[in-house]
């Protein structure tokens, strides 16, 4: 069941990000050449703040699933064993460190986005 859930989360999040990108791009095209006042008015409205926060959360979830998939493909004892047998012994540790790294990075980016747009 979890396989289908991850499949749907990836597709729905990608669809949301596409819609969000089109929305932002439409604003930029309609308001071309862009002026400071119209941009600040746009970015201060509640719709922008909520939808952008959601886009940030969705991006992190989408990236987490993608990077987890890459990690479980390329950082396994078998795959690392192609490089070196000694690497393969530490595959779980290497994959764990990689997961922590991209999780911390993702959460930091999410926090920075929230701080930037809401402050």
């Amino acid at each position: 069941m979890i396989g289908s859930t991850l499949f749907y989360v990836q597709r729905y999040s990608a669809t949301y990000l596409l819609a969000y990108t089109i929305w932002i791009a439409s604003f930029l095209i309609v308001n071309n050449p862009l002026e400071y006042n119209s941009w600040t008015a746009f970015t201060n409205q509640i719709d922008f703040l909520v939808l952008t926060s959601l886009a940030a959360a969705v991006s992190i979830i989408h990236a987490f699933i993608g990077l987890w998939t890459i990690g479980t493909d390329y950082f396994t004892s078998r795959t690392l064993g192609f490089l070196s047998v000694s690497f393969s012994k530490y595959a779980d540790t290497i994959r764990g460190a990689y997961t922590i790294l991209f999780s911390v990075l993702g959460l930091s980016i999410f926090a920075i986005i929230l701080l930037t747009i809401w402050s």
Partner: peptide
């Protein structure tokens, strides 16, 4: 039996 993230979805 095939519903996990690896069996089919890989």
């Amino acid at each position: 039996d095939l519903s996990d993230p690896f069996s089919v979805y890989r």
